[in-house]
Computed example of a mutant assay.
Amino acid sequence: MTRLRTPGPTVGVVGGGQLGRMLAEAASPLGVDIVVLDPTPDCPAATIARDQLVADFDDEAAMRDLATRVDVLTFEIELANQDILERVSDETGTPVHPKPASLETIHDKLVQKRELEAAGVPVPPFRAVESAADIREAIDDYGAPVMLKARTGGYDGRGNVPVESTADAEDALESVAGPAMVEAFVEFEREISVIAVEGDGETAAFPIGENVHEDEILRETIVPAGSSDPVRKRAREVAEDVLEVMDGRGVYGIELFETPAEEILLNEIAPRPHNSGHWTIEGAHSSQFEQHVRAVLGWPLGSTDLRSPTVSVNLLGDVEEERDAALSGVDRILEEPGANLHWYGKREARPLRKLGHVTVSARDDGVATDDLLGTARELEDSVTFRSS
Rank of each mutant, 00 (worst) to 15 (best):
P98G: 10
E220F: 08
D42A: 14
P230I: 02
G31F: 03
G154E: 07
T375R: 15
D324I: 01
D134E: 12
M63C: 15
G226I: 10
D71C: 02
R87I: 09
V242S: 10
A150V: 12
P162Q: 01
G302P: 11
V176L: 03
G143N: 06
T166A: 14
H342D: 00
R136E: 15
P207D: 11
P44V: 04
S102G: 11
T105H: 15
G159Y: 05
L79C: 07
R136D: 13
D59Q: 06
E378Y: 08
P337A: 03
V360K: 00
A326S: 13
V194K: 08
F126Q: 05
G16V: 00
E244T: 15
P351A: 14
S165G: 13
G317C: 12
A45L: 05
D305C: 10
R5L: 02
N275W: 04
E237W: 07
T203A: 12
F257Y: 12
A167Y: 05
L30H: 08
V251I: 08
G199S: 10
S287G: 07
V32I: 14
P271Q: 03
Y142A: 03
G366Y: 12
A80I: 00
G253P: 10
S227P: 02
F385I: 00
E255A: 04
H213G: 01
E189G: 07
V11H: 06
E137R: 13
A118E: 11
I195L: 11
E255R: 04
D370N: 09
S28L: 15
V70C: 03
I135V: 13
V13C: 04
S382K: 05
L23N: 01
K233W: 09
L173F: 00
L341T: 06
P309I: 01
